[in-house]
Amino acid sequence: LSSTSCLLGNKIISHLLLTEPTPLAANQDNSTNDSSLRTLLTLCDLMNRELLVLIDWAKEIPGFSGLSLVDQMSLLQSGWMEALLVGVAWRSQDAVGEELVFTGNLRLDEAQCRATGLADLYEALRHLTAKYRAMKLSPEEVVTLKAMALANSGKSTPFPQQDTDVQFQDGLHEALQDYESSRREQHRAGRLLMTLPLLRQTADRAVQAFLRLHRNRHVPLHKLLLEMLDAK
C-alpha cells in the first residue's frame, strides 16, 4: 500500500471520528399512563431525532456528497437502521444486565423489550452486541463500520455502478484496510466486513418490529421515522 493511500485512509477515519455525533438524550414521553407505551414512544422520538442527525452525519462522510441525490436517498433509505444499530450495539457492549443501551438515559432490558413488543429486536441486537464485544472493536473500527454499512446498503441493480458509487465504497474500504495494516492486523478488515450481513439481518428485524407496532397496535410515529420505515 502506498504511503499516500495510508495517509488518506487515516485522514478519512480521523474525519469520521471527528464528525461522529454526540449521543442524544431521550426525552421521556408523558402522554399516556401505559408505561410500556410510554417507553416505546420515548424510543420512537429518540430514533426520529437520531435520524435527523444521521442524515447530516452522512453528508460529512467523504464521498457521500459527490453521489447523485437519488443515490444519497437510496443509501439512506436502505442503510439508516443499520447505521443507527451499530451505535446501539457498541454502547450495549458492557451494559449491566444485558440491557440495550439506546442512549445514556434509555436502557431497556429483556423484560422491558418484551413488554413493548420488541422481544424479537432484543434477541437480534444482543446477538450483534455479543459479536462486536467478542471482536473488541476500536472506536476507529466502529465509525468506519457505520459508514461502510451505509455505503454498502444500496439495492443491487443489473446496471453498472456509477464511478462515484464505486469511489465512495472504495475510499472507505481502503481507509479500513490501511488502518488495519498500520495495526498489523492483516485479516481484520475482512472479518469486520463479514459482520455486515448480521448487521443487515438485525436492522431488517428492527424495521419489521417497528412497522408491526405501527400497523397492528397503531403506535403513532413521527413523520420522518415513518417515511424511512415505509421506504423499507
Partner: peptide, 20 residues
C-alpha cells in the same frame, strides 16, 4: 420524490462537500 419528501428536503439543504 413526493413519497419521500422529508428525506429529499433534508438532503437538498446545502452542504459543502468534504475535501480530503
Amino acid at each position: 420524490k413526493e413519497k419521500h419528501k422529508i428525506l429529499h428536503q433534508l438532503l437538498q439543504n446545502s452542504t459543502s462537500p468534504v475535501d480530503l
